Computed example of a mutant assay.
Amino acid sequence: MALVSAAICPHPVMLIPDLAGRSDRWDRLRSACLEAVGLLQIPVVGGGLEPSPDAPQLVAIVGGDDATRSFDPAGAYPSLFSNGIRWRSGWGQDAEDPQPLPLTLSLGYWLLVSSRPDGKGIIVADGAFESIDFDASLEDCAALGRDLAGRAERVAMIVIGEGSTCMTASDRVDQAEEAAGYDKAVMRALEQCDADALGRLGENGLAMTGRAPWRVLAGAAAGNEFEGRLHAGGRENDGGYFVASWTRRPSGANV
């Protein structure tokens, strides 16, 4: 049982077209996120689509929040009401125990559903929705990652978090050098699939919503080799947002 792939994406609400309208900037970032999620090979049936035999059996969406919590997939649905935005989606609203997801998981859910080719078919992989406390310890993050990676033979993750883009404008000015250094270290670790480096990105006083979920990813990926791709983050017009994808190398593959 192991992690086989991961998509790492940010959580600006403007990823949702209904909120962003027409914007080249958000269109580019949205396309990068959907490209990364599309590489997870999430199994979809219907509309002439058939899943690959190597498709993941479980898709886990992980994002930071004020508390660590598991959400019941049967009642989970994306909602931005708590962020002051009248937007929600998903059939979970009609469940007996509806559970609105926090911002990070709501964006991850939206990306998952929107990644289907032409919006067709039904996703048949099991789902997991896990928030991790922004201030969770490295040990707690790694433990959640190992737990998620052990829930199925083939596990994919959508990991939602940001670096300095989530800081206030004044903090970005006051801590510009530290933030820039942290962002570069994160981007390098994501591009190189360096789980050890990602897990070691420690307590530096910067308010990064990605720290805990990235550490969860590091815990899930430990002991395996991955190939990485940076879809956004390395160019000035990316706006400081990171988008990356990891795909596990087969055992015995040349590094």
Results as ranks from 00 to 15, higher is better:
I122A: 14
L198A: 04
P73W: 09
G48R: 09
S89R: 15
R188L: 03
E96D: 14
I61Y: 11
M14I: 03
A221W: 03
A218P: 02
Q93N: 10
G161S: 11
V4L: 07
G223T: 06
M14L: 15
F242L: 06
K120E: 13
V255T: 14
Q175S: 13
D66P: 02
R28P: 05
A169E: 12
R151H: 05
V37W: 09
D133T: 10
Q192D: 14
E139S: 15
E191P: 03
A218R: 04
S131G: 09
A222D: 01
P98R: 13
E225C: 07
Q57N: 10
V124A: 06
D126Q: 14
M187Y: 10
T168V: 01
L80E: 06
M208P: 05
A185N: 14
A232C: 08
E191H: 06
E236Q: 11
P100L: 04
E225P: 00
A36D: 09
G252Q: 03
A212N: 09
A142K: 14
Y182L: 12
L206R: 01
I61M: 12
L34E: 05
G108V: 10
L39Q: 14
L39W: 12
E50S: 12
L3R: 04
D24P: 05
A195N: 08
A60F: 00
V45N: 06
R248G: 02
A20F: 00
A156Y: 03
L148C: 00
G108P: 02
P98V: 07
G21D: 05
M208L: 14
R154Q: 03
T104V: 12
A244F: 06
L58C: 11
P51C: 07
G219S: 01
